[in-house]
Design a protein around this nucleic acid. Structure first.
Lengths: 378, 378
DNA sequence: AAATTATACAAAAACGTTTCAATAAAACAA
DNA sequence: TTGTTTTATTGAAACGTTTTTGTATAATTT
């Protein structure tokens, strides 16, 4: 606490534009530079740089010298100018994080994972949000590349990712990892969750509770996660012989706003109910969809989970708060963010050493978390 | 779509490390610099710089010259090196955004507002998240200052802000605006919402619906927003003579995790119920608190809003999705973010012109949004 | 004793900009 | 004509680092 004030105090002073270094010749200098430290310590700027960065040559510098330099740097409140540093080293310890829609609750935990892991390596994220607009994505991509971020982490949430964007990403020679969308590319890494396994586990859960008449509100057809989750369901039906009534399976419309998913799901569920085909459980594409479905069911006088079980996917933070709290397939979002950062940082250092490493594709397991919205058939 | 590929294509090429500029002498250059443009266009680097930046001197440069330089820059795919640029100009079009907990749903819309407004001015945010840890905040503060961000925007969500942090912020000579906490400081600007007015409106809404026996789950005592909202309630009681039973007013414990607010509220509401003092409405500190309260009420067999109305505060995105959807006091979060950025950018340009302007303190009105969780007394 | 190697430091050359001061030509005024 | 201003362009000096190369001195080996 106290140490902070002292430490940062001198830092601020050193950044201040009023003359910090008294007693020097004309002394109207704004910041304290490496040369100031050199003069104060009695060594040259080169030596100071070598000592302060622990460069290879620092091996030859005796301890007393190091000590004096470090002391001088500290008392002067020296902080290297990051622009000059980057200009030389071409590195800036910054990565670009590109979201497609920060409004999507799916983002937040991933962001937390990204930030936390970056922090451990003293990297800082520059955040951009494409608002689901392609042109905005491109603009941001350009801005980030101009800034020479050392890596790119792209959050492909709820994204109708067309092939072109992928190919655009191949061009820049900068480590890139995309979260939530697997590419067969060997220049862009990816971190995904096992959607198919999750879909399988979700129906399996309902099945185990005795449900046989199950309705499905699938995600938009264009979404790869939607396809994969459904593939898991189909695999389960093959494995067990469970019959799916296709008339009880509807698709959310292709649509850019993830939060509209709730309203869409609400409507689709109402239409499902209009058909008067009984079902005892409903599997939703994701949690937002599930929220919409529960709302429709409740409004129709169908109790959840009393008369109908509902299962979601994602485990967004509000899933646990919902009444009834939502049984769902948990995605390890924070880990995904962490994973992406680890891949990115590894790539950065590989590139720094001129080692070529192929793209990494990591698929994390999902895990079902049972809460109140599903119940065994009486 | 097509234009993009062409544009960015040359950009990528220009950043590539394989020799981009063929035909030059030894031609193993990694990037295309301003001198390349100079040679290609037949003018000097100075002129190129002046033209491309529209510097004051550009006034004297005839159009044909400008044209040739711009063409050369474009065909070469020249993009100025931002480090060199910043090294000279001491500006980098970057602001630091410091959150105290990104997990707090209150953050997201503000972040959206910040990002969107920055985008308009071609600024980019560096995102940090203190995880409610003081030491982490300090570390991040130092990192951001080292990077010479041009301004600081601090999101004081659910923060037990001690005086020291405030005073620390006074030191750096960099425009700073804090969201969610008003300071009397005249060096740090602030953007807040009218908590007192919101508290007043909330209780007024319940009163108008006929409720007279109202329970309160107040926020942690240390939180200024908690105090201010309660002050609004008290003002209302003075204005109307409404009686508040102090035994029906409880406080959330001081605690760092905003999402734990739900559990805390759940417990506190249960204890409220144990007292067996009847109440027909409950006003919660914020939406999270309200979620916890609804859960406790529902569990105790008390229907919301049938037997008890509940009102929240904040209007986080899940408030509308909740069943029943939550009546709450809407904070213009996105506008708050936008407002903060506008203040910050204004301050930056004032500082650039050596104009001293005092800190700005903006207080935005809140607005009640009526949904399902409140109902008139029969 | 001479030759070699290890140690300890510094000078200078980048890195890619922007900007100030200088220059030269052209235009204008006296 | 000469002197002054305006227009058009440039060389060179920063900006603050890091890194390479060079040069002493000291330590070690032959």
């Amino acid at each position: 606490m106290l140490g902070f004030n002292k430490q940062l105090g001198t830092f601020f002073r050193s950044l201040r534009s009023s003359g910090g270094n008294v007693g020097r010749k004309d002394s109207k200098k704004a910041t304290v530079t490496i040369r100031d430290v050199a003069k104060a310590s009695g060594f040259s700027a080169s030596t100071v740089s070598i000592v302060l960065n622990n460069a290879p040559l620092a091996r030859y510098i005796p301890l007393p010298t190091k000590g004096r330099i470090q002391k001088a740097a500290k008392t002067l409140g020296y902080h290297p100018n990051i622009f000059a540093k980057s200009l030389r080293s071409k590195r800036n310890h910054t990565v670009g994080v590109m979201l497609f829609d920060i409004t999507d609750p799916y983002c937040t935990p991933i962001l937390r994972g990204i930030e936390n892991t970056l922090y451990q390596s003293s990297y800082l994220p520059i955040l951009t949000d494409a608002h689901n607009e392609r042109s905005r994505f491109e603009r941001y991509l350009e801005m980030l590349l101009e800034r020479r971020v050392e890596a790119l982490i792209i959050l492909a949430n709820w994204l109708f990712l067309d092939i072109n964007i992928l190919s655009d990403l191949e061009k820049p020679e900068i480590p890139t990892v995309i979260i939530g969308r697997e590419l067969q590319s060997n220049s862009t890494s990816s971190v995904t969750v096992d959607d198919e396994g999750g879909g399988y586990a979700a129906v399996a859960h309902l099945y185990a509770l005795g449900h046989r008449k199950i309705a499905f509100v699938r995600g938009p057809k264009a979404l790869s996660s939607s396809k994969n989750r459904w593939r898991g369901v189909q695999r389960f039906t093959r494995d067990t012989g469970l019959q799916i009534d296709e008339r009880l399976a509807v698709d959310l419309p292709d649509q850019l706003n993830p939060n509209m998913g709730v309203d869409d799901a609400f409507r689709m569920t109402q239409e499902l109910l209009k058909q008067k085909r009984p079902f005892t459980a409903l599997m939703a594409y994701d949690d937002m969809t599930a929220f919409g479905a529960v709302r429709a069911l409740t409004k129709a006088g169908i109790k959840v989970p009393g008369n109908c079980s509902v299962i979601g996917f994602d485990d967004v933070s509000s899933a646990a708060l919902f009444v009834p709290s939502l049984t769902t397939v948990h995605q390890p979002l924070e880990s995904m963010g962490a994973s992406a950062v680890n891949i990115a940082i590894d790539s950065i250092s590989s590139a720094a050493e001129n080692r070529k490493v192929p793209a990494i594709h990591r698929k994390l397991p999902s895990e079902i978390v049972v809460r109140e919205s599903t119940r065994a058939i009486p």
